[in-house]
Simulated assay, not measured.
Amino acid sequence: MSLDDTPYYHCVSRCVRRAFLCGEDPVSGASFEHRRGWVEGRLLFLASVFAIDICAYSVMSNHLHVVLHINAEKAAKWSTLEVLQRWHKLHKGTLFTQQYVRGEAQPDYALALVERSVETFRNRLMDISWFMKELNEPIARQANFEDQCTGRFWEGRFKSQALLDEAALAACMAYVDLNPLRAKINATPETSDFTSVKKRIDTAKHQKQPTPLYPFVGKPRKDMPDGLPFDLTDYLELVDMTGRIIREDKRGTIDASLLPILQRLNISSDNWLCITTEFGARTGNVVGNELSINHYCESNHRQRKPPERSRKLLA
């Protein structure tokens, strides 16, 4: 992961056993639906601790999707005390960091050790690998305890894709938010439980945005506040229209009134429908328009570029 290229990443974790993460097992008849709440609750809690923002998420029957934003500027502004208070919500820290948080007097060598620990903790609190570790390990322990078994619960650590530009970000977020519709678990975005789009729709009814999620702040502009570079209403309307097309199993075009956001992102209606239904199959480790991916490959000294179809999909 390279913050020089992009702060946005799409991560996926899958279960290794036939036993479901959530939902109902058709073989045994056992219901694991309550585990969705485990995942969503842990995910939103971690967003309040890490310098990592949640752009989109969906908790499925045997895997979960999350689109994350690494907020390095936010982490850099944290004081020593704030870093320690955040880290201590996850782990005990050290004897010296505990003393520092309690405001106890410490010798110089102890303060030096505290500062060294703080830099380690600060880096971890803006590290997606640590974020996914803190998400997946507690869920695995809970599930193993409930299933009365031991061993791996997750297929691996996690898979990630770098989202290099706004087009890739918007397409990936819509793909994640529409996962329950494509899987025929729910009929509409507003009824898709344990997804970011439902949480955004519920709070939008009260003219608000959900605090745990990275906010929409409008189109890119000078002195832009921290947040997603889209209008919330544009995004929700686009997801709703895309969901209607997916739900009706048609490959038609998106309503003309919704085209401006796609035009700004340089995505045709056909490409939008293709990538929001086949994002995983059509993309590789990095996603973006051809120019973005060429720049990424050059800056990271990569010789092998993604397939031509994947590179042009968002163009």
Results as ranks from 00 to 15, higher is better:
K250V: 13
G41K: 09
H88D: 04
P210H: 01
M60G: 05
H301I: 10
F216A: 02
D25E: 11
L265E: 12
L291N: 08
S129Q: 09
K92Y: 08
E104L: 14
A30I: 15
L258Q: 15
E237K: 10
K222S: 14
H10A: 08
I293H: 00
R116D: 10
R200S: 05
E278W: 07
R182N: 01
L232G: 04
M60Y: 00
W87E: 05
R264I: 03
H206I: 08
D249G: 13
M1G: 10
P306N: 03
T94Y: 03
S192H: 03
L95W: 04
H65A: 03
E24Y: 12
F158G: 06
E166W: 04
D177A: 01
I54P: 02
D177M: 02
P26V: 14
I201P: 01
F96R: 06
V176M: 06
D240K: 15
L163A: 05
Y175W: 10
K74M: 11
F96N: 09
N300R: 15
A174W: 04
N123A: 14
V217W: 00
A76T: 08
Q106D: 05
L232C: 10
P306W: 00
R102K: 15
E308F: 12
A56Q: 02
E248K: 15
F216S: 02
T277K: 14
C172K: 04
L111D: 07
L181M: 12
I54L: 05
A174L: 08
Q99P: 00
Q85W: 02
D202P: 00
T195E: 02
I52A: 08
I185G: 00
K250F: 08
S58P: 04
S79T: 15
Y9L: 03
P7I: 01
K159F: 12
P138S: 05
T120R: 11
D5Y: 09
D234V: 02
N136F: 06
S269A: 15
G243L: 09
R244F: 09
C274H: 13
L169M: 05
R247L: 14
Y175K: 01
T211R: 12
P212F: 11
Y9G: 02
T277W: 02
T242C: 10
R35H: 11
R247G: 15
I275W: 00
R124Y: 01
R311Q: 09
E298V: 12
S28C: 06
V114C: 08
G243C: 09
N289H: 13
L44Q: 06
W38K: 00
H65F: 03
D249I: 11
L43I: 06
G103W: 11
M126G: 00
L258E: 14
E24W: 13
C172S: 14
H206V: 07
A183L: 07
H34N: 11
A167K: 06
S48W: 00
A183F: 04
K198R: 15
Q263M: 13
N71Y: 01
F279K: 06
K133D: 09
W38C: 03
V39C: 12
F216C: 09
T203P: 02
F96D: 12
F194E: 00
E137Q: 15
K205C: 10
R302Y: 09
V197I: 15
I128L: 08
D231E: 15
L228R: 04
T80G: 06
A30K: 15
A256C: 10
G288D: 07
C15F: 07
R304T: 13
F153G: 02
P215W: 01
D270P: 01
K208E: 13
T277C: 13
T94I: 03
K92N: 10
